[in-house]
């Protein structure tokens, strides 16, 4: 990973300045955040994963985690990776799942000229020119459209495994969202008073927040480890472990956070749900916990009991 963290600081500032509740609500209501997308383009974020960007791929994933922290309503990971594989930034391109003649679950296909379709089966990807679009959304209200192609051709992604990289993107996005959920929960517990004192002073709440914080720490560490394994022979198994671990954390963290927030956090007016709903949605995109656990488990079984420790202890 680059020791230069300027891109992280810049991302935190820009994402934080723009991602207010009004923008998130508007995006979830179907309004594409054009102005923000232009800011991201102007600051080079959409090109960050390209081969000639001057950044390591892990740097792009560090920014994607920041995007998760802010529930960035632009599909930054998909745009970054589409630009990487298409080696272009002229037209807005995103990524969905290849499904026969169509592509499904593509964010903001209405805005895109090109959509990349990836498959869990391996490196084969396609790129399509966008025809009719049937708009849809995931449970977080994020755009997930179905695309009919006017033209389609195979897309060579070099040594990349597209589905893996998208799974890693969701992993670090989720870790970022969970970090924000922890912050919101700590703030709320400190502000909300019942029985004459902040609820953070009650041991039951403290213990729940401790569990929440531990799961968040595990999620962040798992995501970082997987990003650090990019380009190594361990990439696939590390992403598998991280996606599974973060998926498990997401459920625990969202559940406790909503319990701590009480009815307030159940309102649309509160911003908590922008992060919890995304964590709930992202854990099931590009392979849920079980998909990746089976992948990892089958690999370990093939390694065998006598070599399993060597597998576990191979990398710090």
């Amino acid at each position: 990973m680059s020791t230069d963290t300027l891109h992280i600081d810049t991302a935190s500032r820009i994402f934080g300045d723009h991602c207010d509740k009004a923008l998130l609500d508007a995006a979830e209501a179907g309004e594409f955040p054009q102005a923000l997308c232009q800011v991201l383009a102007d600051n080079g974020f959409l090109q960050l994963a390209m081969h000639d960007s001057g950044f390591a791929l892990a740097d792009a994933f560090a920014v994607i985690r920041i995007a998760g922290r802010h529930a960035l309503p632009v599909p930054l990971a998909e745009i970054m990776l589409a630009n990487r594989w298409l080696n272009q930034t002229d037209a807005l391109a995103t990524v969905g799942l290849a499904a026969g003649e169509k592509i499904t679950a593509a964010p903001w296909a209405t805005q895109a000229k090109l959509v990349v379709g990836v498959s869990e089966l391996g490196a084969d990807a396609i790129v399509v020119r966008v025809g009719d679009v049937e708009q849809g959304a995931n449970l977080a209200g994020e755009s997930r459209d179905q695309v009919a192609a006017t033209a389609s051709e195979p897309l060579a992604c070099g040594s990349d495994e597209p589905y893996e990289l998208l799974a890693l993107a969701r992993t670090v996005q989720t870790a970022g969202a969970l970090e924000r959920v922890l912050e919101l929960s700590l703030d709320y517990a400190g502000e909300r008073e019942q029985f004459g004192r902040p609820i953070s002073k009650f041991q039951a709440i403290q213990h729940n927040l401790a569990v929440l914080a531990a799961e968040v720490a595990a999620a962040v560490r798992a995501g970082d480890a997987a990003a650090a394994a990019l380009g190594t022979p361990r990439q696939r198994v590390e992403i598998a472990a991280a996606k599974a671990r973060v998926g498990e954390a997401a459920g625990v963290v969202a559940e406790i956070a909503h319990q701590v927030h009480g009815a307030m956090g159940f309102t649309h007016e509160h911003r908590l749900h922008h992060f919890t709903r995304r964590a709930w949605a992202w854990r099931d995109e590009f392979g849920n916990d079980v998909f990746w656990r089976r992948e990892l488990g089958a690999h370990i079984a093939s390694v065998g009991a006598d070599a399993v420790w060597d597998f576990i202890a191979t990398r710090g």
Partner: peptide
């Protein structure tokens, strides 16, 4: 495979 993978996903993270 699911059971093995679940245990490993926790173990690898805790070790880190």
């Amino acid at each position: 495979a699911d059971a093995i993978g679940r245990i490993a996903s926790h173990l690898m993270t805790l070790r880190r």
